[in-house]
């Protein structure tokens, strides 16, 4: 279990570093980095608190704390991915509406030019 928790801690730190680096290079906007940093922080704290992990495992009725950690990892990233799906859907809607508006404005401009 100790090795798994150590691996998890390293991965969390790695995730934080990658996200912070991406924000610095403007590959990810700050508002979208928050979910990833939050998820990485929760994982780091849990992987460094075996007591908390035992408690969560017992609450979930699991005898294996690493399994509880894996379930938590899955749930946390599910939330992050869901949030991103909402963002992508909003962007797609806005993008389509904007493309249609651009086409209509261009059409009307062309009509005006043809009239003159």
């Amino acid at each position: 279990m100790g090795r798994l928790l150590n691996i998890m801690s390293v991965l969390s730190l790695l995730l934080m570093a990658v996200v912070l680096f991406s924000v610095r290079r403007s590959h990810i906007r700050v508002e979208y980095s928050v979910s990833w940093l939050g998820a990485a922080l929760i994982l780091l704290v849990l992987s460094r608190s075996p007591g908390a992990l035992y408690w969560i495992a017992s609450q979930l009725g699991l005898t294996d704390p690493p399994l509880a950690l894996l379930i938590l990892v899955f749930c946390i990233f599910l939330v992050v991915i869901y949030r991103l799906s909402v963002v992508i859907s909003d962007l797609k809607d806005a993008n389509i509406a904007m493309a249609q508006r651009v086409a209509i404005i261009e059409f009307q401009l062309q009509s005006l030019n043809e009239k003159q």
Binding site: I96, A99, Q100, A103, E106, F107
Partner: peptide, 25 residues
């Protein structure tokens, strides 16, 4: 015909809706 040219491919729904929007306006 008059042609409403979309700036990039939107798929059938987006294409038809653009025409509906212009007709409505």
């Amino acid at each position: 015909a008059d042609v409403l040219r979309l700036p990039y491919h939107l798929g059938l729904g987006g294409c038809v809706q653009a025409g509906y929007k212009l007709a409505f306006e």
